[in-house]
Amino acid sequence: MFSLFSNKDKKKKQMARSHINALWEILLADGRTHANELKMLYERANYHKLTKKEVDAITINRNEISANKDDIPFIKPETVEERFHFIYDLTCMMMIDGDIDYREKEMCKDYALRLGFQRNFIDELIDSLTKNIGSVSNLNEMYRKLYPIIKKLKMANDNKSS
């Protein structure tokens, strides 16, 4: 049967859904929903070419973080750079309401582990992100600024199978 979408397109869509699901879980972690969190969620979805309907399918009727967890599996990005972008977005979501709740921070750390970052670098990475978000103009500048940490992460992960 002829398919309109290649396997690569399907994988990209699944990764996008996984990313938005993770952001949604961070959004819910503190028990409060802030307008800026929702705005960011839909902006990131738009970046990943997900429609509002697709995002709503991820988020609708999810009163608990784990309600639809099995419906959208976590997909680990393939490159260290993509993993950095993922944890960067999660950290931004944690901070966007102006209050870093410990549950959001712990969830970011859990995701960092799932992304393959070694435990001994996670606190340093999350702390560096929270200190530098807002002080740099874009993600690429943040990546360059934190490259020494990322390089350690990459070296650590290249020596360990994922």
Rank of each mutant, 00 (worst) to 15 (best):
V136K: 08
F121I: 10
R103S: 04
N138L: 02
L129H: 01
I126S: 00
K105E: 11
K131F: 15
L139P: 12
I133C: 03
R103W: 13
Q118C: 11
V136Y: 06
I122R: 02
R114M: 10
N140V: 13
D123M: 08
R144E: 15
Y143S: 07
A112D: 01
M142E: 00
L146P: 03
P148I: 00
I96Q: 00
N132K: 09
L125A: 04
N140A: 14
M107S: 02
I122P: 02
L146H: 01
M93V: 00
E141P: 08
K145G: 09
F117D: 02
E141H: 10
E104C: 00
C92E: 10
L115M: 04
D101W: 09
K154E: 09
R144K: 15
D99H: 14
N138G: 01
L129E: 00
K154C: 07
K152D: 04
I96G: 00
K151L: 12
Y102K: 15
A156C: 06
P148H: 03
L125K: 05
I150F: 07
L115H: 05
I133F: 03
S128K: 08
D110S: 12
M94A: 09
K105A: 08
L129M: 00
E104R: 00
N140G: 12
E124R: 14
I133L: 03
G134D: 05
E124F: 11
L113V: 08
Q118I: 12
M155W: 14
M155G: 14
M142K: 05
